[in-house]
Amino acid sequence: MSKSTDEQVNRRDFMKTAIIAIGGVIGGAIGLPAIPYLIGPAQKQDSEDWVRLGAVSKVELNVPTLFKTTIETQTGWINAEEEFSVYVLTENGQDYSVMSNICTHLGCRVRWIPDQESFFCPCHNAVFAKDGTVVAGPPPRPLDQFEYKVEDGFIFVKRG
């Protein structure tokens, strides 16, 4: 060994510092990402979204048109797929009314009976008119309406 003891000591100090530094870098590189990784799910906000129903051109004039979309509610990796069905009615191709297909009585699904020009709920024989108003049966109020918007030829509704 030609190096002097002083040089040896300096070199070893440097190496010690370097080892600590490298350890810090690697530890930080794993440890810091681990924090958001661990608390991430707590930070997630529930968002209220516009749900796209489909092309406006699919809505027939004067006939309530059924649109079905599946809404994915995600909790972690569990994707609950909720089927979301609405009837869209337009009388002039410009103004729409988006109606829930859930009977306001006890929540059965109503369906449009073309021959009778009305919605029919099979559970208690409720009948709703084309615009969703109650014609017969027990429902306390007309079919629920959704807020909607039309963008780029697609119709969207706001859930909730």
Binding site: G54, K58, V59, E60, T65, L66, F67, K68, S85, R111, W112, P114, D115
Partner: peptide
């Protein structure tokens, strides 16, 4: 498809969406 016929074919209008029928 939506309204069915009178030969025992069901009306699919309540089960399939307009898109699906298309």
């Amino acid at each position: 498809i939506a309204a069915g016929t009178h030969e025992g074919m069901p009306a699919w209008g309540g089960d399939l969406s307009t898109d699906e029928i298309d």
